[in-house]
Amino acid sequence: MKAVITVLGHDRIGIIASVTGVLAEEGINILDISQTIMQNIFTMIMLVDLSKMKSGFSKLGDKLEKVGAQLGVEIRLQREEIFNSMHRI
């Protein structure tokens, strides 16, 4: 199963380190990563592979949410099908 992680918020040092730290702990492989500043908002998008994930999807979501709260950014974890179905016929 693949998922998309998005991080939106104010730029600061250590966002990528914190998020990827959680992913490494959870045994999650990053397939694609990009980062940019869009309309003054820090935007990071990752495509990740969850097939070797240690704990469950909702636990991972909780962990990322916690990290997001600490960093003051919004982190979302969504299964990739939603983007496929919305943007591809």
Binding site: T6, T36, T43, I45, E74, I82, F83, M86, H87, R88
Partner: peptide
């Protein structure tokens, strides 16, 4: 594969 702007479009629909 969908593009970055498509991902952001979906998220904006939900957020805003």
């Amino acid at each position: 594969m969908y593009s970055r702007s498509e991902i952001i479009e979906t998220i904006n629909m939900i957020r805003h």
